[in-house]
């Protein structure tokens, strides 16, 4: 059985069917991410003064990840353009680059997540707060590389003026700890929305990478039997990839810079 309009344009839409399908899907994605961005804005404007974090994320690392995604969009479109010019070898090269860049992005994001999960805020029974990265944890004591603060508010705006905190190794007996919590999504509203937005985005990157990997590997056999249809498949995966990258272009300034 032949599936209609996989290559030629449908008379009423002027497009082949998969393109209409992907744009309908992307429209639903806009609504999903749009709702989460709105959530972010409402949470931020509703936060008590001085309690919305600034400078919690590593800007150089985020910048590298932004460059990685922009480059991956360029390699995706180059892969598609190569097929348009009947250069299958070049397509293979560019699509492999896209796949590597996608994996690089996920790797860097995992590093950032790991850093957050190893970062602890420890409230002591005497009222002081120790903040830093976990070095060692035993049944009797916890060792972190960090510093003490008197007021929790000091932890929120890391971009504020004043001398930077000197990080030293601090050993805290378990008996002195009132509360110990890492910088996971449960820690603050900011981290909850940060992990939701970036986690959902990372899932899209992983999903896209699986599709790109399939089209680069076993799926590329279609080129031999139906090159136009295969080229269209690459265009569709490229449209999805561009959408995912465009979401990051909005996420990066909102979460890292503002």
């Amino acid at each position: 059985m032949d599936i209609p309009y996989t290559v030629e344009a449908r008379p009423d839409t002027g497009l082949y069917n998969a393109k209409v399908g992907i744009w309908l899907f992307l429209a639903s994605e806009v609504m999903l991410f749009g709702a989460l961005f709105s959530t972010y804005i409402l949470l931020r404007v509703g936060a008590p003064e001085g309690f919305w974090p600034h400078g919690w994320l590593n800007i150089p690392v985020g910048t590298v990840n932004t460059l990685v995604l922009i480059t991956s969009s360029i390699t995706t479109v180059m892969a598609w353009a190569s097929l348009k010019m009947n250069q299958f070898g070049r397509f293979k090269f560019f699509h492999a680059c896209t796949l590597c860049l996608a994996l690089t992005f996920v790797g860097i994001k995992s590093y950032e997540y790991h850093d957050k999960f190893m970062h602890y805020e420890i409230t002591l029974k005497d009222g002081r707060i120790a903040d830093g990265h976990l070095v060692k944890r035993t049944a009797d004591q916890v060792v972190i590389s960090g510093h003490y603060v008197e007021d929790r508010k000091e932890l929120f705006d890391l971009r504020a003026g004043g001398p930077p905190h000197e990080h030293t190794e601090i050993t805290i007996p378990q008996a002195q700890i009132k509360k110990m919590e890492n910088y996971g999504p449960w820690h603050t509203t900011y981290l909850a929305i940060y992990f939701t937005l970036t986690g959902l985005h990372a899932l899209h990157v992983i999903g896209g990478a699986i599709v790109i990997g399939f089209l680069w590997g076993p799926g590329s056999k279609l080129w031999k039997t139906d090159p136009d249809r295969f080229t269209n498949r690459i265009e569709i995966s490229g449209l999805f990839w561009h959408f995912v990258d465009l979401v990051w272009i909005f996420l990066f300034p909102v979460l890292y810079l503002l």
């Binding site: 969009s73 479109v77 598609w80 265009e235 490229g238 449209l239 561009h242």
Partner: peptide, 25 residues
């Protein structure tokens, strides 16, 4: 909208982000 058009939109948005980051820095 083809991948070509969407790519142009994306690159325009990326360059706007880059200039914004430049001013911010």
């Amino acid at each position: 909208m083809s991948l070509k058009a969407f790519h142009l939109v994306f690159i325009t948005a990326s360059s706007a982000l880059a200039f914004g980051c430049g001013v911010w820095g």
